[in-house]
């Protein structure tokens, strides 16, 4: 093999061949035709002129916000206000820690797990109880080739897919174990007390 040279390796297909065979080859060759160039445009507003500041959306409940913001943004989402224990954890994460702190994100991830547990348990007391099996969509394994989509295809993800079931069922197994253990301990205390 030759030592490395200043030239680039030759292309498998010439640019003329590429232009003839690939629809639109090179139509954006000039960076001036690319909408992302330059990265920073100079547009005071989408329709010209200096726009008025955005009007504020009413805050219907105390809206959590990053402490890296100087204020509540004028517009925000109103999905799923914080509630329950998960809500308290979320409010703490926003009020105490900036986005730069791992504690901020770990608290939020922890709150997500708590939310799942308290919402699912709560659903059994309401009109729309969770159906853990149906909500996983796992019945599509039968209708959409669960076996044939995996076997003999050399997929790299098959080795860890069984962990998905652990993620879905694991918290319930742990919660069940914890509940049974607690009941046994209470019963034992009553017998001995």
């Amino acid at each position: 093999m030759h030592p490395y040279t200043p030239q680039k390796p030759p292309l498998p297909r010439s640019t003329e061949e590429l232009r003839d065979t690939i629809p639109g080859w090179g139509v954006d060759l000039d960076p001036a035709d690319r909408p992302a160039v330059p990265r920073l445009q100079d547009r005071p507003g989408l329709d010209g002129g200096i726009p008025e500041p955005a009007e504020r959306q009413p805050e219907r409940w105390p809206r959590e916000r990053s402490i890296e913001h100087g204020m509540l943004t004028p517009v925000f989402g109103t999905s799923c206000p914080p509630k329950g224990l998960s809500g308290r954890i979320r409010r703490l994460a926003y009020a105490r820690y900036s986005e730069a702190r791992a504690a901020h994100w770990l608290l939020l991830l922890g709150a997500d797990r708590v939310d799942t547990l308290e919402s699912t348990l709560g659903s059994f007391l309401g009109r729309q109880p969770d159906n853990l099996l149906a909500e996983t969509g796992v019945r599509s394994e039968l209708s959409h080739g669960g076996f044939s989509s995996r076997v003999g295809r050399g997929r790299a993800d098959l080795v860890h897919q069984p962990l998905d079931a652990v993620i879905v069922l694991g918290p319930w197994v742990l919660a069940g174990y914890g509940a049974v253990t607690a009941v046994r301990r209470v019963a034992r205390l009553r017998r001995t007390g």
Binding site: G45, A54, E64, S66, E68, T73, V75, E99
Partner: peptide, 29 residues
């Protein structure tokens, strides 16, 4: 989600809008 009138939107960075996401400054809405 973008406002069209913040520092970022004025420079075409609509995905980095500063007026629509109170929860984080590292991502837009």
């Amino acid at each position: 989600v973008f406002c069209g009138r913040c520092w970022f939107c004025a420079r075409g960075l609509y995905s980095n809008c500063h007026n629509v996401n109170p929860n984080a400054t590292a991502v837009g809405g």
